[in-house]
């Protein structure tokens, strides 16, 4: 570092972006050590996706049972409040409810990530002082939010599936095992996973860009 000759501006290289893999490694420490905080952020996703999965899987099971057209089973279905003559028409109220719960979950993730940006203004400024580019900040928020969202989605799918099967077994006893529509349940699970992941990733975009706009000088803020 000693006795360098004067250099022109053109000689100053541009800071290079670190790779996604390295960004992930750096972000992982934060995700792991902020686990309990993440659980709270995740709970919204877990509930919304569990609800979605439950509704879909239940729908799959009931349709399979209606198709079985068994006399005893039809009585059970009617007892459970299923209109066995309505066919496949989706329940509009339910669709609306599901969409609303997903929207609430999206807003929930955006909100908690924005709060975490405000909490960590100084940290973002410090990272920039150490040489982090905007892209790194965007990535680390994106990674954190997506990992939380995807973990929450997987958990929500499992919970929704478990609850649907438990309730279906209580209502329809042994018929459920005989008529389990495995393929359509798998399809519903895949759809829930897809929707949850998409929502988490979408929710990550805005907070990540707001975080990246913070300046290095924000590191100097005195208040904690």
């Amino acid at each position: 570092m000693n006795a360098q000759p004067s250099i022109t501006n053109a000689a100053i290289p541009e800071q290079r972006q670190v790779s996604w893999a390295v960004s992930f490694q750096v972000s992982w420490a934060g995700i792991r050590r902020r686990f309990f905080r993440s659980l709270i952020t995740m709970s919204g996703v877990v509930l919304a996706i569990a609800f979605l999965t439950y509704m879909q899987v239940m729908n799959d099971i009931v349709r399979a049972l209606v198709r079985a057209d068994d006399a005893v089973l039809n009585v059970l279905l009617q007892q459970a409040g299923v209109d066995i003559y309505a066919g496949d028409a989706p329940d509009r109220m339910m669709v609306l409810l599901i969409v609303l719960s997903l929207l609430a979950c999206l807003v929930g993730i955006i909100n908690s990530m924005l709060m975490s940006v405000t909490e960590r203004i100084k940290e973002i400024g410090t990272l920039k002082c150490l040489g982090a580019l905007d892209g790194f900040i965007v990535r680390s928020y994106f990674i954190e939010s997506s990992v939380q969202g995807i973990a929450g989605t997987v958990l929500g799918c499992l919970i929704g599936l478990a609850v649907a099967i438990a309730i279906a077994t209580t209502n329809y006893h042994g018929y459920i095992a005989a008529n389990l529509p495995l393929l359509s349940i798998l399809r519903s699970l895949a759809m829930s996973l897809g929707i949850g992941t998409l929502l988490s990733v979408m929710a990550a975009i805005l907070p990540a860009y707001i975080a990246a706009r913070k300046q290095p000088v924000d590191a100097m803020r005195v208040e904690e």
Binding site: Q4, P5, S6, I7, T8, N9, A11, I12, P13, E14, Q15, K128, C129, L130, G131, A132, L133, D134, P216
Partner: peptide, 17 residues
């Protein structure tokens, strides 16, 4: 070091920091 900070772009400044 003989280089004007105000002429640098964001990525060059990040490199300097």
């Amino acid at each position: 070091d003989g280089c004007n900070l105000q002429d640098l772009n964001q990525k060059q400044l990040a490199w300097i920091r």
